[in-house]
């Protein structure tokens, strides 16, 4: 499938491995990306609270450019959660608020641009991979399954919430990336921190708060037995990876949980080299974790035959259908 692509600033710099791995796998999954020419900053999380109209206009410019440049597609995708949310938010609010729509287009008109709200479908990269390309298509490309690797799927806050277009199964406990990683052969651990805060920009403005939040996630992943955290957001990756050392210092702990992007794991499973996928640029070394990948599928214990409960067995757990 084809989609317009808004890379955003982080993918060009600190989240370069995200971009590299995406570019490395796009042919395998049949994803054709058309980068928006002359795109600008998305305003990140802060601008919206500084000046609403200016922030929407800033984003509206990207939407207008995308609309004008679109060839054979009306899907606009971004890999960064903040970029995705901003594009989606402006599109939705322009659709719903005629006044805002007018003001933003007035601003755009000064630059000879115009955006028809609703004309593009703004979708996160994970959404495209899981729901459009599909798990089966991904599975079909797997040549080196990630057997033996235990991963914690971490979605962060901005992709599944507020979910303007109803793309996800749950806003608190989504499962799309879990299913995707299972399709790659990895074992996905169960943890309840999938959409908890990574600290966001608190790592800069209030490190102690951020350390607490980072610790919770890293500790939770380690407790759940994960070899690594897999994410879809440059901000989450940066906080959990780059600040893990500082967090350890702060709490006198010694966690070493690497944090990779789902595209990197897809690349590994598709047989790409670590270098090609930007693996090795992370702060917490992923090599020990990746060494756990085995050639053989781990033996799944055969479903236990029903047996009579013995005293001391405890109460049965609820059946999950």
């Amino acid at each position: 499938m084809k989609a317009l692509f808004y890379p955003g600033c982080s993918m060009q710099r600190n989240a370069r491995p995200y971009l590299d791995s995406l570019l490395a796998i796009r042919a395998d999954i049949g994803l054709e990306l058309q980068e928006i020419d002359d795109w600008n900053c998305c305003g990140a999380t802060e601008y919206m609270s500084v000046h609403r109209v200016a922030a929407h206009s800033l984003i509206g410019r990207n939407l207008a450019l995308a609309q004008a440049q679109a060839v054979d597609t009306d899907v606009l995708t971004a890999g960064c959660s903040a970029c995705f949310l901003n594009l989606s938010k402006t599109d939705t609010q322009m659709r719903e608020d005629a006044k805002l729509n007018g003001t933003v287009n007035e601003a755009l008109a000064a630059g000879g641009l115009h955006y028809d709200a609703g004309s593009l479908k703004v979708r996160h990269l994970l959404d495209l991979v899981c729901h459009d390309i599909g798990y089966d298509a991904v599975k079909a490309r797997v040549v080196k399954p990630l057997y033996g690797l235990k991963v914690a799927a971490y979605y962060g806050c901005q992709v599944v919430r507020p979910d303007y277009d109803g793309r996800w199964d749950s806003h608190e406990h989504p499962t799309a990336m879990d299913t995707l990683l299972r399709a790659l052969g990895a074992e996905v651990v169960d943890w309840s921190l999938k959409t908890q805060c990574c600290g966001g920009h608190m790592s800069v403005i209030g490190p102690e708060v951020a350390f607490g939040l980072i610790r919770r996630l890293i500790h939770g992943a380690a407790e759940a037995g994960a070899d690594m955290v897999v994410t879809l957001c440059p901000m989450c990756q940066l906080n959990l990876d780059a600040y893990q050392v500082e967090m350890n210092k702060h709490f006198h702990t010694d966690y070493r949980v690497p944090v990779l992007y789902f595209t990197q794991l897809m690349g590994l499973a598709f047989g790409k080299s670590a270098k090609e996928l930007g693996i090795g640029k992370e702060f917490v070394d992923a090599t020990p974790a990746l060494a756990k990948i085995q050639a053989e599928a781990p033996k799944v214990a055969e479903a236990k035959r029903r047996r009579r409960p013995k005293p001391g067995d405890g109460l049965p757990m609820p059946r999950m259908e």
């Binding site: 749950s170 608190e172 406990h173 169960d190 309840s192 757990m317 609820p318 059946r319 999950m320 259908e321």
Partner: peptide, 16 residues
């Protein structure tokens, strides 16, 4: 189970 953040079915000591 429809409210996953309450953990029923995942967390052993959550009961209905």
């Amino acid at each position: 189970r429809r409210i996953p953040q309450y953990g029923y079915g995942r967390l052993a000591n959550v009961f209905t």
